[in-house]
């Protein structure tokens, strides 16, 4: 295979999963939600895109629609589910994702086991695969940039601070008038919208959707990205997304050069599992730590503290 194309393909994958990782970071990193059904919203975006593009809707509307439909489902799921304990929520959304996969697998309109072919978002006449990949990089990273800016701005806004406060202590935050359910529902809705857009990008890039692409495994790959990179740190989760994808490709390339006594895919997931346990044991904050909250008031407090400290040491 063309090595340059391989690298470009890797960059597209990092971008798409970077968006999903950012969305999980918003939900888990900032709002403390255990979304074990991330793949469900990725699936909704992908199938919305596929079905709409079949009837000739332009690609940007398909992407937006994927995000919207996914957000609506995110809201619908959140209404009953958010009152649940973390473990119940996790199990419920995991089951929700599996039900969705069953539906697209069984229903004629969604193509069943054979899935649907999807036309690429932007197809230039006579363009080579490399140019196609470059166009996709442009499209994916444009969406990634928007998502990154949104999550980054939210995280450092009063809104984001309220979200983190709820994550740290629900009761205390409620006592200060911050509605836990409202914030979490909004986080789940926005996160789902982002995952939906990523799903649409994924569908048009691969040019098909299949039920088998949306196994629970996808959700946990994204969890690895977030936990490894650093929950509540947007740069961290992007780093996590890149590392997981590179690692993924790496083990696949290695098998061409080394004769391993073990199937590389098996080895890859064994190592992923071990890695995540090690991260949880020895570095639960991930590679990049959550950055401190910066506000004028906090700066003032810090300056005053330093002043007192300096005085004391004189």
């Amino acid at each position: 295979m063309d090595p340059l194309l391989y690298v470009l393909d890797l960059i597209v994958f990092i971008g798409i999963f970077g968006i999903v990782a950012l969305s999980l970071n918003l939900e888990f990193g900032f709002a403390g939600l255990a979304n074990f059904g991330k793949v469900a919203f990725f699936l909704i975006g992908a199938y919305t895109y596929a079905l709409l593009s079949q009837i000739g809707v332009p690609f940007y509307l398909c992407l937006v629609a994927g995000g919207l439909v996914s957000a609506i489902f995110g809201l619908l799921v959140s209404l009953p589910a958010l009152r649940l304990r973390a473990d119940y929520l996790a199990i419920a959304v995991l089951a929700f994702g599996e039900i969705l996969r069953l539906i697209v697998k069984s229903e004629e309109f969604a193509g069943g086991d054979w899935g649907i072919t999807v036309s690429p978002a932007i197809s230039l006449v006579g363009a080579s695969h490399r140019v196609d990949a470059l166009v996709n990089i442009g499209l994916v990273y444009f969406c990634l940039l928007i998502c990154f800016i949104v999550v980054q701005l939210l995280a450092n806004s009063p809104y984001g601070r309220a979200m983190r406060a709820i994550r740290e202590d629900e009761v205390a935050a409620e006592a200060l008038g911050k509605s836990e359910v409202k914030y979490k529902a909004q986080a789940l809705m926005l996160g789902s919208a982002m995952a939906g857009v990523a799903g649409g990008l994924y569908a048009q890039y691969l040019q098909y959707v299949l039920p088998g692409m949306f196994m629970p495994m996808v959700t946990f790959t994204v969890w690895i990205m977030v936990l490894l990179g650093g929950p509540a740190n947007n740069w961290g989760v992007l780093l996590g997304a890149a590392l997981v994808q590179i690692f993924n490709r790496g083990t696949n390339i290695l098998k061409d050069y080394f004769i391993l006594p073990i199937n590389p895919t098996d080895l890859q997931y064994i190592l992923f599992g071990a890695l995540i346990i090690l991260v949880l044991l020895y570095r639960p904050q991930g590679l990049l730590k959550e950055s401190r909250i910066k506000t004028k008031a906090m700066e003032g407090v810090r300056r005053a503290r330093n002043a007192v400290k300096n005085k004391g040491s004189q």
Binding site: A86, F220, W223, D266, Y269, G273
Partner: peptide, 30 residues
């Protein structure tokens, strides 16, 4: 047990159990 001793949250324990599942499942596959 080590995770619980280090004060892992229930979410961390759940993720760890899924990670353990990966290790076992793919070791079985291998």
């Amino acid at each position: 047990q080590p995770l619980a001793k280090r004060g892992a949250t229930i979410i961390h324990l759940m993720v760890a159990s899924i990670a353990l599942g990966f290790i076992l499942r793919y070791s079985i596959g291998a």
